[in-house]
Design a protein around this nucleic acid. Sequence first.
DNA 1: TTGTAAGCGTTATCAC
DNA 2: GTGATAACGCTTACAA
Lengths: 344, 344
Amino acid sequence: MSANRVTSQDVADQVGVSRTTVSLVLNKVPGSQISDDTQRRVIKAAAELGYVPDAAARALASRRAQIVGLVLARGPHHLASDAFITQILDGLIDVVRHNGMRLLTDIVEPHHQEGTYLELVRAKRIDGIILSGPRFDDNALQSLEEESFPTVIMGQLPKTALYSVDIDNSAAARIAVAHLVNLGHYRIACITNASTTYTAAADRLRGYRDALESAGLHYNEGLVRFGDFDPNSGYKQMKNILEIKPRPTAVFVASDVVAFGAMTAIRECGLAIPYDIAIVGFDDVPFARFVDPPLTTVNIPATELARKSCEVLFQLIKKDFPDEKHMLVDTHLVVRQSCGASLN
Amino acid sequence: MSANRVTSQDVADQVGVSRTTVSLVLNKVPGSQISDDTQRRVIKAAAELGYVPDAAARALASRRAQIVGLVLARGPHHLASDAFITQILDGLIDVVRHNGMRLLTDIVEPHHQEGTYLELVRAKRIDGIILSGPRFDDNALQSLEEESFPTVIMGQLPKTALYSVDIDNSAAARIAVAHLVNLGHYRIACITNASTTYTAAADRLRGYRDALESAGLHYNEGLVRFGDFDPNSGYKQMKNILEIKPRPTAVFVASDVVAFGAMTAIRECGLAIPYDIAIVGFDDVPFARFVDPPLTTVNIPATELARKSCEVLFQLIKKDFPDEKHMLVDTHLVVRQSCGASLN
DNA sequence: TTGTAAGCGTTATCAC
DNA sequence: GTGATAACGCTTACAA
């Protein structure tokens, strides 16, 4: 059974120094100059006694909770973003731990418990916050901004002055579509991931258009359809696209999950991927390589996104403000079997 | 810019009472008898001033962090379990929040930072812990047990006296296989989700066998293959099964992810699901309904599992020990299109 | 190079 | 019914 808790006083007594010294040594306080010998003895005693500083006491005295908050905002269709939670958690926890901190997670549903995350800040439960999700249009966000509480948006939010880390959606879409162009396709359709009121969707559509135009191809609105996050929307829009005459030879679907539905539609029409129609997705969700055929798609480095967000957050906490407010991490095309070889 | 923090003293001053009274009122302390009038005035003042108790101070004084820890142990192939993280988080955060607490998440890799989670306990950062994952064979677990620190295993661990919440793997498998039997199949193959050194795998295999036997069918080892968590293992084992003469008319795959690979193998052999061969999976991962054809499978109520685990944990924290140490939550078969109609 | 002492903002135990 | 007062265990000026 556990004896009484070991406190820094116990360690101090054992070594024959004061609690101050123990604190200085164990926290490796920069300015302090404790003799090497004393240091060793303190560290040894602490280890022997199994001393673990009390988090609450430490937080109270130092005014730092040593916890960062991750707040996930759930959208109406949170399937796509959910696919990355594991990676996000991996990246975040890794960086957080390397900085001697911990991760506290909260979820907010739209128009429901919005702003609950402010309690985390007010109670000084967390030292910084990472927000991820489609929207945070509550005024809690504005409060954070005004108080300049360390905050990083993972992904993007329209009109906010907060720091953010995201991918370059239009550049990534451009590369995906260029891949199709390079394979010899010139009638390339597009299904967006969502309504273009979502900036990510608008950006990806712009990338599609840019790729076409910079290849000298005509951008044709008639080849564009709008998905709505889920496979079913992809299914329906694809059915529609397949009726276009002449039939497009390729389609860029700006979301893997939507693409899965599109693939089903293609199969149902008795067409083969990639022979009759090539398809390229976006997101590289974990299951993209397990569909039939494995989907060529744009990889979103979710872990990297998380790590970077966390690193920026730590800079903000240290008041070492980055020059750039909006950072981007690199995406890359993952070529699998859904586009086949060159048409030429 | 934020003014000085509002403390309970400020509230007390405003009302003209002591901090004690404020604490008593705001925490709704059972024994206390503060006049209704005073109560109202305290609550009003607190709201007006925007008073939010300091978490660290509160934790220090009350010796309760008001945080529960979720520790995820990563196995060698954590794809299947990852599929549920979102649901787990949803369930946990919901219950935790209803109890005025928060959720802190940590991840441990096998044989890596094992036992790191003990720091959470030692530093009194958390009041209870929920462990999830294939294995925790470090001795940190034993320490928790010895100190009777509130701990709940979500899922199962061989030989542990800790409280746990899990599904009844063998019963669920039995129902899945019975479904196939009821459809008229009598040559039913099986691909396990993993090696039977994993108790969940052994239990599911046992369910398969029981279902067969209680239907008066002969259990035939020759129809059993062993999967290994990923689609590729399912692909290979299924190819193998398809060479069996006479060919089985159905297969029970004890993991959706493994089943996805099996489905690919079936397609590659030019066979149609469910016409040539029926297939039923296990897990009901979020993508199960999006494969072609949508997979009939056993739903694991991950959210429910999480909620229940959390509820048990709160009981342990309150020292209100449940009679049962090992609880089970119900699973159910989700019938989709991968088994077709009756063969009769 | 190390120690003293004053907080940090609550909760909890008694008195009144 | 309500209020002093002492913990809670640590950090951090400031002294020595």
